[in-house]
Deep mutational scan, measured.
Amino acid sequence: QEEEKEIKRLAKKFNASEEEARRAWKKAGGDPETAEKILKKKG
């Protein structure tokens, strides 16, 4: 599933848990760029 792959990639890229990545993904409405910004800010 595309979403799961994206979440795993985000978690790995930002050294975050999949739970954090999933939360960022949901907050971003499934937009990878926005999710990255959220995780970057958090990191």
Results as ranks from 00 to 15, higher is better:
1 Q>W: 13
1 Q>P: 14
1 Q>M: 14
1 Q>D: 14
1 Q>G: 13
2 E>L: 11
2 E>V: 10
2 E>G: 08
2 E>I: 12
2 E>D: 11
2 E>Q: 11
2 E>A: 11
3 E>P: 05
3 E>T: 10
3 E>Q: 11
3 E>D: 14
4 E>I: 10
4 E>K: 04
4 E>W: 11
4 E>S: 09
5 K>N: 12
5 K>Y: 13
5 K>D: 12
5 K>H: 11
5 K>E: 15
5 K>V: 12
5 K>T: 13
6 E>G: 05
6 E>D: 05
6 E>C: 04
6 E>P: 03
6 E>S: 06
6 E>M: 12
6 E>N: 08
7 I>H: 02
7 I>M: 04
7 I>W: 08
7 I>F: 03
7 I>V: 09
7 I>A: 02
8 K>M: 14
8 K>L: 14
8 K>E: 11
9 R>W: 09
9 R>F: 06
9 R>S: 06
9 R>K: 10
9 R>P: 01
9 R>E: 07
9 R>N: 08
9 R>D: 07
10 L>F: 03
10 L>N: 00
10 L>A: 02
10 L>E: 00
10 L>H: 01
10 L>G: 00
10 L>P: 01
10 L>R: 00
11 A>Y: 02
11 A>R: 05
11 A>V: 06
11 A>M: 10
11 A>I: 07
11 A>H: 02
11 A>D: 00
12 K>R: 11
12 K>D: 12
12 K>M: 13
12 K>I: 13
12 K>P: 00
13 K>T: 07
13 K>D: 06
13 K>L: 12
13 K>C: 07
14 F>C: 14
14 F>Q: 02
14 F>G: 02
14 F>H: 06
14 F>S: 03
14 F>A: 04
15 N>G: 11
15 N>M: 08
15 N>Y: 05
15 N>I: 03
15 N>T: 03
15 N>K: 09
15 N>H: 13
15 N>C: 08
15 N>W: 04
15 N>D: 07
16 A>L: 11
16 A>F: 06
16 A>K: 09
16 A>C: 12
16 A>D: 02
16 A>I: 13
17 S>G: 04
17 S>Y: 03
17 S>R: 04
17 S>F: 03
17 S>L: 04
17 S>I: 03
17 S>V: 02
18 E>L: 13
18 E>R: 05
18 E>P: 08
18 E>M: 14
18 E>K: 05
18 E>C: 06
18 E>G: 02
18 E>Y: 15
18 E>D: 08
18 E>H: 07
18 E>A: 05
18 E>W: 09
19 E>M: 07
19 E>P: 03
19 E>L: 04
19 E>D: 07
19 E>Y: 07
19 E>T: 06
20 E>C: 06
20 E>I: 06
20 E>T: 05
20 E>K: 04
20 E>A: 08
21 A>T: 06
21 A>I: 07
21 A>K: 00
21 A>E: 00
21 A>C: 07
22 R>N: 03
22 R>D: 03
22 R>I: 06
22 R>F: 08
22 R>Q: 06
22 R>G: 04
23 R>I: 14
23 R>F: 09
23 R>Q: 14
23 R>P: 01
23 R>D: 15
23 R>N: 13
23 R>H: 14
23 R>S: 13
24 A>R: 00
24 A>V: 06
24 A>C: 03
24 A>H: 01
24 A>L: 02
24 A>W: 02
25 W>S: 02
25 W>K: 02
25 W>E: 01
25 W>F: 08
25 W>H: 03
25 W>R: 02
26 K>R: 12
26 K>I: 09
26 K>Y: 11
26 K>V: 12
27 K>A: 15
27 K>V: 11
27 K>T: 14
27 K>D: 15
27 K>W: 11
27 K>Y: 10
28 A>T: 02
28 A>G: 06
28 A>I: 01
28 A>N: 02
28 A>E: 00
29 G>E: 10
29 G>T: 03
29 G>N: 12
29 G>F: 08
29 G>R: 12
29 G>S: 07
29 G>M: 09
30 G>A: 06
30 G>N: 04
30 G>M: 05
30 G>V: 01
30 G>Q: 05
30 G>R: 06
31 D>S: 06
31 D>N: 10
31 D>G: 02
32 P>E: 07
32 P>K: 11
32 P>A: 13
32 P>V: 15
32 P>M: 14
32 P>D: 03
32 P>T: 13
32 P>G: 06
32 P>Y: 11
32 P>L: 15
32 P>H: 07
33 E>M: 11
33 E>L: 11
34 T>E: 13
34 T>A: 13
34 T>H: 09
34 T>P: 01
34 T>D: 07
34 T>I: 15
34 T>Q: 13
35 A>S: 03
35 A>L: 03
35 A>I: 07
35 A>C: 08
35 A>E: 00
35 A>T: 06
36 E>Q: 04
36 E>C: 07
36 E>S: 08
36 E>F: 04
36 E>I: 07
36 E>H: 03
36 E>D: 04
37 K>Q: 08
37 K>H: 09
37 K>I: 06
37 K>N: 08
37 K>S: 05
37 K>W: 09
37 K>V: 04
37 K>A: 06
37 K>R: 10
38 I>T: 03
38 I>A: 03
38 I>V: 04
38 I>H: 04
38 I>G: 02
38 I>L: 12
38 I>P: 00
38 I>W: 07
38 I>E: 06
39 L>M: 10
39 L>D: 00
39 L>V: 02
39 L>G: 00
39 L>W: 00
39 L>T: 01
40 K>Y: 14
40 K>S: 14
40 K>P: 01
40 K>M: 10
40 K>V: 11
40 K>G: 10
40 K>F: 14
40 K>D: 14
40 K>Q: 14
41 K>I: 07
41 K>N: 15
41 K>P: 07
41 K>W: 10
42 K>D: 15
42 K>S: 15
42 K>E: 15
42 K>P: 13
42 K>I: 15
42 K>M: 15
43 G>V: 11
43 G>T: 08
43 G>M: 12
